[in-house]
């Protein structure tokens, strides 16, 4: 799980680790901020989902109740760098879903806000800037899926301990 640290000690390795950490912080900050109002007011979020007119009404509430918790779980894990690849993959999946929803709504000429964040000021209307923003985050998530959480992550810490324990075991066996 520590692929980003593969160039250990090299400048490239440090740059990759820095980029991974930046991507983790940016993704977790976005998703943790986004999930807050959705958990607090699922009805409002359900209406936001319904305005996209993609899902049948019978599925809207289920998505409104479960999606924010996945945002919360994945956001916390990616911040800590625990199960980095898995949490980044979950985030990538959500971003692909958001991108598809935005593009479908744009193709229908719907003039709606994205329903992404809590405050009115943070609400952006759907459009190409939102698509670019989500695509940039998707690239960040894909980077973490490919390279792992980097050296400054719980995954790397666990891997280091495991390899030290294995080395100790080999030493004792000798």
């Amino acid at each position: 799980m520590t692929g980003a640290g593969s160039g250990r000690g090299s400048v490239r390795g440090w740059i990759a680790d820095g980029a991974t950490l930046a991507a983790r912080i940016a993704l977790s900050a976005t998703f943790l901020y986004a999930c807050w109002f959705k958990i607090a007011d699922p009805y409002e979020f359900a209406i936001n989902i319904a305005t996209y007119q993609i899902l049948p009404d019978s599925l809207v509430n289920v998505l409104a109740l479960t999606l924010p918790w996945l945002e919360l779980g994945a956001g916390l894990l990616v911040l800590a760098g625990a199960l980095s690849r898995e949490s980044a993959l979950a985030i990538a999946g959500m971003l692909i879903m958001f991108l598809a929803a935005i593009l479908i709504a744009m193709s229908k000429d719907l003039s709606i806000s994205c329903g992404c964040f809590a405050s009115e000021a943070a609400q952006a209307d759907i459009g190409w800037p939102k698509v670019i923003e989500d695509a940039a985050m998707l690239a960040g998530a894909a980077w973490i899926v490919a390279l792992g959480g980097g050296r400054m992550s719980v995954d790397a810490l666990v891997a280091r301990r495991r390899s030290r324990r294995q080395a100790d075991g080999i030493e004792q066996a000798r």
Binding site: P42, A46, L65, G73, L83
Partner: peptide, 28 residues
């Protein structure tokens, strides 16, 4: 990843069931 998604979904539905202000019905 699928397990993580299932656990989070379960947490969301569980919290909705015990939400003090009354939960959202699973089907509108």
């Amino acid at each position: 990843t699928a397990l993580l998604a299932a656990l989070c979904a379960g947490a969301g539905i569980g919290y909705n069931a015990i939400r003090p202000a009354g939960g959202l019905p699973l089907v509108a």
